[in-house]
Computed example of a mutant assay.
Amino acid sequence: MNLAVVLVSPKTPGNIGSAARAMLNMGASDLRIVAPRCDHLDSQAVAMAVHAADLLRGARIYSTLREALADRDLSVGTSARLRADLPAPRHPALVRPLVRQAAAPALVFGPEETGLINSDLEQCQVTVRIPTGDYASLNLAQAVLLVCYEFLQGQDEPAPVTRKTATREEMEAMYGHLQETMHLIGYTDAVRARHTLRLWRAMLDRALMSSAESRLFRGFLRQVKWKVDDAAGRGTEAGPDRETRTTEAGEV
């Protein structure tokens, strides 16, 4: 499986090296690091990686989570807390079928002290929580090991039929387009926009859109903008009885 492990703003070299070792144990090899606060090739990181030193050296560094997820078609966040306006975390085993259906899934872990913040989790289609005892705080490498085990080694079962879904970059572009359209037609305002978009994200992410479907949706949004601009130019309100310009479903 082409599973990428994304570490967001890790603080200590030892944790990065240990996470790389955990990945190698479970058969993952694509390590991505977003805005690290330390040198991921520090001697402590290399020492903790042990036989995963080559995996560590091959890690890719990104400035933002959006860039790290751009080519992924499924992103799975990790969190031990319930968040307002965001779907509740699920047991990793329940998410395994989604991950195995994806062509390019990503598993996202937050900083050691805080975990992923809301703006990070917004970019993840689903969130998982590792079931623990009363003390729920896990070391970063422990979390990487456990969730990678669930996704890569947890159960020997036939691989389901793969369905190619839109990349996260395509979905983020679509959500930006949706937000612009909501403002254009007065569907929301600056105060409510973030909450409203979160609700739309939760609904549309569950659909696991293909690239063609995301383009279809954006074609609809372009038609809405054209209709509003046309009505404004005519000095009238947009209505169904006015002639409309057609937009091809596959237009970008």
Rank of each mutant, 00 (worst) to 15 (best):
G154V: 08
A207D: 01
T162D: 04
Y175K: 01
Y187D: 05
R206A: 15
R192L: 11
L178I: 13
E169M: 01
P158L: 12
L184D: 01
E213G: 00
E213I: 01
P160E: 07
A190P: 02
E169P: 04
M203L: 15
M171C: 10
E157H: 00
L208K: 13
E172V: 12
M171I: 15
D156K: 08
L178H: 01
P158V: 12
E157V: 08
G154I: 08
T181F: 06
Y187K: 03
S210C: 05
A166H: 02
Q155K: 10
T188I: 13
T165Y: 05
R201V: 12
A207E: 05
M203T: 11
G176S: 10
L197H: 02
S210G: 05
E213D: 00
R206K: 14
L204W: 14
R201K: 08
T196E: 13
L184S: 03
A166W: 05
R168I: 14
Q155H: 11
E170W: 11
K164A: 15
P158C: 09
E170C: 11
H195W: 05
R201W: 10
K164H: 14
P158Q: 07
A202P: 01
A166Q: 02
D156N: 06
L204S: 00
T181N: 07
Q179W: 06
S211E: 01
E170T: 14
G176F: 05
E157G: 00
T162L: 14
L199S: 10
R168M: 15
G154Y: 09
A166Y: 07
M182Q: 12
E170L: 11
T165R: 03
E170H: 10
E169C: 03
E180N: 11
M171A: 07
M182K: 09
A173H: 11
T167P: 02
L204N: 00
L178M: 13
G186M: 06
Q179E: 15
E170V: 13
K164D: 15
M203F: 14
E157D: 04
L197P: 03
L197V: 05
A202E: 08
K164W: 08
E180K: 15
T181L: 10
Y175E: 01
Q179F: 05
E169R: 03
L208R: 14
